[in-house]
Design a protein around this nucleic acid. Structure first.
Lengths: 166, 166
DNA sequence: ATGGAATGTCAACGAACCTGACTTAAAATC
DNA sequence: GATTTTAAGTCAGGTTCGTTGACATTCCAT
């Protein structure tokens, strides 16, 4: 058999040294990942928490509050503070549910869509540059490792979103 | 020539849809990435900021405060609060510089090394599982994309650390 | 030796999380 | 129809971790 075994390969990519590099890469890259939206939000009265809410409401229009809580992984008190300001400022609309009147369905208003677009354009531009620099093969690997790194619960959320997309 | 052009490939991996998936993957994966150390730190009186300080002091023993500031990208006042508690609790030693007495050189004590080990073991375990699941090819791509995503300044820091390692 | 630059510290403040207890309204269950 | 459960929102209070401003110390160049 021509197949190499784990021990003969040595699994060099699993050494503590390699893992440490991956850890530090994640740390520095995440800073870049959030840098552009953070810069934009700095001028306005919002923060990273608002960005996340706007992103996922745009992603799943009509989503409920509890749905958003599950995706964002924060407490409802925390999310509520964010949502309240977004609603007050007319970026988000909150509709009482027709089939279940306890639920609130969330939508971006035109004004909300403008902010979402501004933030996601900036974030996509960086991602696009990184993807282009690394190439399709690398991008596939990137996505595989990230997906394997998620908590099972989060991975389910992610896959559900991923497949509801394209 | 057998080489396909950019337009003939279509660069499908650069569609907004693909980029959005990458953005969401980063978001969910980073949560997993920090989950285990966060859990460990919860019991003790420390937080993520302490973890980062301990990590990079371990990584570069004898580093100065301003060095650490550049790597962590926070204000010195913010770092100082973290360092003070770590020093008070005997996890970090701060030595006045011999050549330049303004500088403080930072080292982990034995007690600090124990915490560092506990945290990095947990984080590496997750990273190792993800790497193993995705395979060496994917890991290479993962690292390429992350590196391309960093701010130039951060990338320099990262490469310097990366090469000082193995 | 002195004034400016660099390094680090102390104090106070703010954003964005958190927990816990509670209310309101509607749906589901018995 | 009464009771329990669920969804959302609120109030009070606390933690972590970031910020700005003021300050002490040390070095270095004039």
């Amino acid at each position: 058999m021509s197949e190499t075994t784990a021990s003969s390969e040595g699994l060099l990519f699993l050494t503590d040294e390699q893992l440490r590099k991956g850890i530090e890469a994640m740390f520095f890259a995440y800073r870049g990942f959030t840098a552009d939206p953070d810069r934009i939000l700095d001028g306005k009265d919002y923060g990273r928490a608002h960005h996340r809410a706007v992103h996922f409401i745009h992603r799943s229009p009509g989503t409920t509050v509890s749905n958003l809580l599950a995706i964002l992984g924060v407490t409802k008190q925390s999310l509520n503070r964010v949502l309240r300001t977004l609603i007050e400022d007319g970026l988000v609309r909150s509709d009482k549910g027709k089939v279940d009147a306890r639920e609130r369905h969330l939508y971006l208003t035109d004004k909300g869509l403008i902010l979402e677009r501004e933030l996601s354009d900036a974030q996509r531009a960086r991602m696009r540059a990184a993807y282009r620099a690394a190439g399709p093969q690398a991008v596939a690997g990137f996505r595989q490792v990230l997906e394997a790194m998620m908590d099972p619960e989060m991975r389910r959320q992610y896959i559900r979103l991923k497949e509801s997309g394209s």
